[in-house]
Simulated assay, not measured.
Amino acid sequence: MDDTPPPSSTRGPAPPGARIKGRGAASNPEGRFESIRHQAEDDGWSHALLDEERPRPRTEVTEERARSVISRNDSPDIDFSQAINPYRGCEHGCIYCYARPSHSYLNLSPGLDFETKLRAKGNFAEVLRAELARPGYVVSPINIGSNTDPYQPVEKRWRLTRAALELLAECHHPCTLVTKNALVERDLDILVPMARERLVQVFVSVNSLDNRLAAKLEPRASAPHRRIQAIRALADAGVPVGVLVAPIIPALNDRDMEAVLAQAFAAGARCAGYTTLRLPHELKALFREWLVLHAPQRADHVMSLVQQMNGGLDYDSNFATRMRGQGVFAELLRRRFELACRKHGFGRARELQLDASRFVPPRRPSPQGELF
């Protein structure tokens, strides 16, 4: 009989108590659109393997050809109307990521698939150029990284974010960046000239200063202290930078809010924002599973507070409350945040006014190339 453990790509939940080093999710449940469900049963063999001996799923990147890349929204609780995302899925593996359920549209799991089976839009810059060159295009700041992190580890090789920045700089188009990876420092040669023209603002997400907790919550993102260093590098270079304490998870990382703001301000961040934990669709079960594996003694308490902030539910999609929550604990977080911001002199997260008046439409792609 072959007692070799099943391959890492097998669908269905992982064996009970199975933690996967370097990954946020411990299982691979089907997405909400799937009609077939798989149920794994523990036969006892999995417990004979130590965590470090368990097969670790590798990151797979598939190139796709995008037909459009600029997405638009009119949500009243979001400060930007345009966004671009070079990648689908995110190798950072943040267990709390509200974008995980979007992988279901690809017939992939919001669990391990989201952080291991990535899609890279190989023609990203080409399609972006075509969209910016359209005669009816209306300029407004484009956010890069609203769904998945534009500086996740695979960006080192694919360089899609850098290609987009080069194009935006070429046509003097304003943009904002959101990341939790120090790789953003690589593109200072583009960001610094853009900053001089008020064309860019960077936000670095830091929700805890606890390296051990961060390694479990967001296993392949830069360590918290490294992100603080990135804030310093950006600020010292003259790039406007802010900090996002997001998401705040009650009874887990909320204790670090004031310390994060203090260190970020000392490093050069001059605006700040925060959001509370959001658990849409499949993310509810994935986060509960993570709590049982990594914080079993406080799991019930965490979810109790989460429900208190969401009207008794795991998640409330109401635009008025989904980002900050409601109730006593949510109000306490708001007051703590505002007090810390006043103490250090932070501005609001989107306070900087970017300049959209310099925009020059790029030349449309042509099979004839450019003669001049």
Rank of each mutant, 00 (worst) to 15 (best):
R324T: 08
G325V: 00
G325F: 02
G325A: 02
Q326S: 07
Q326I: 03
Q326K: 04
G327Y: 04
V328S: 12
V328T: 14
V328Y: 10
V328D: 15
V328F: 10
F329C: 01
A330C: 00
A330Y: 00
A330R: 02
A330T: 01
E331N: 11
E331A: 11
E331D: 12
L332H: 14
L332E: 13
L332C: 09
L333K: 14
L333I: 15
L333V: 14
R334S: 03
R335Q: 11
R335G: 04
R335M: 07
R335Y: 06
R335S: 09
R335T: 07
R335N: 06
R336T: 06
F337P: 05
F337L: 11
E338M: 06
E338I: 04
E338T: 06
E338H: 10
E338K: 08
E338Y: 06
L339S: 14
L339W: 12
L339C: 12
L339G: 08
L339T: 14
A340H: 06
A340S: 12
A340L: 07
A340N: 07
C341I: 05
C341Q: 08
R342Y: 10
R342E: 13
R342G: 15
R342Q: 14
R342F: 10
K343L: 05
K343D: 08
H344Y: 12
G345F: 11
G345Y: 11
G345T: 11
G345N: 11
G345K: 12
F346A: 02
F346Q: 02
F346N: 00
G347M: 02
G347K: 04
G347E: 03
G347R: 04
G347T: 03
R348W: 14
R348D: 15
A349G: 01
A349Y: 01
R350M: 09
R350G: 06
R350C: 09
E351W: 07
E351P: 02
E351K: 08
E351H: 10
L352A: 06
L352K: 03
L352I: 03
Q353Y: 09
Q353E: 15
Q353S: 14
